[in-house]
Computed example of a mutant assay.
Amino acid sequence: MVKRAPAKRRPRKAKAGTRGLAPAESILEQLDGPAAEAAAVVEKSGGRLIAAYKEPFGGHPVLLAILPIEAVEPTPFQRDLSDTHHKRLADVISKTGRYLDPVIAVIAPTQGFWTPNGRHRLAALRRLGAKSITALIVVDREVAWQILALNTEKAHNLKERALEVIRIYRGLVEEDASRPESGFAYYLEESALVTLGVCYERAPRFGGGAYHSILRRLEEFSDEPLRAALKVHEKRAAMVLELEEKVAAVVSKLKERGLVSPYLRSFVVARINPLRWIKGEAPSFEEVFKTMRERATKFNVEKIKPTDLAGAAGPPDDA
């Protein structure tokens, strides 16, 4: 039986002015350890160190550097490049004649630097032919895995979030697959996103929004090693996609009968979802999806009327 990790707790609001460093305490007098190593990589890559300081919340060393643009690459697990977004960003930078938003960078595994949050800014500057890019270098490379948590203010849609999570997950497995999954709950946000990420990898047009709430109720991070936990997510993703094939067939039949709604998939999934009537502890993932597959197979589209869809809600079918 899979052991579940303890529930994630949000920190309480702290009293003002009780945490972190004062401005004078943020001065980094001398570089040593990982900070010195990062400074050496800056020089080796042809960059220039501009300043160093302790970031005022946690006191961790940060380097401000100008790096050759060819020395920086996006991490392989962040969301895909938006052609429209990076071109629009390039236009703005070109019109203002200034670039004032440094990317976060960490030392890459092989050479140069990774930016876990600057794919679009990097692409925009490359589009403009820039020679260099300003970067805040975080000496702890593990921050690359934490970027989802650091970027919570950015409006990722479900597909972007899920793909980013599964890419982070696979990167963690490559580094050390023996670590417990629960140790990375903070980075990965939701266990359900890992399973949905696998679904989107296998079926890019998958409508995950209809299944998200179900997976959130059924899945939690476990204390199993990452390697073993990933196999569980992959097995569950296969079950979700198997169900989606049956749901898609029902949706197609409903459309043939002239029933049109942007929420058809969500409507069908809601109709076959046994969790609607279950309070308290839910059945196992396998039991729930077995029931849903059986109900989807037996779904009688002849009984569905336009009035039944009037109150349908949830994520649209392309979400």
Rank of each mutant, 00 (worst) to 15 (best):
A312D: 04
R293S: 14
T297C: 09
V42W: 00
H212M: 10
V288A: 07
E281L: 08
Y211F: 10
E70Y: 09
L230G: 06
A192C: 07
G197I: 02
P6D: 06
A319N: 07
F77Q: 08
D317V: 00
S132N: 14
A5G: 11
I166Y: 08
K255N: 09
Y99L: 11
K246T: 05
H120G: 09
S132V: 12
A228R: 13
L172A: 09
V250Y: 04
D318G: 05
R257F: 06
P283A: 02
E294P: 05
K154L: 15
G59Y: 09
V247W: 09
M239K: 14
L309Q: 04
M1P: 12
E201Q: 15
V194N: 13
G208F: 06
K279L: 13
D140Q: 05
P56C: 00
S266M: 05
P74E: 03
R127S: 13
R19E: 13
P61Q: 02
R12A: 14
V41S: 02
P315N: 08
A270T: 11
P102A: 01
L31P: 01
P109D: 06
L63I: 07
V42F: 00
S191P: 07
N151Y: 08
E201L: 14
G197A: 03
V103F: 07
W114K: 02
E175G: 06
A228D: 15
K44M: 08
L89M: 10
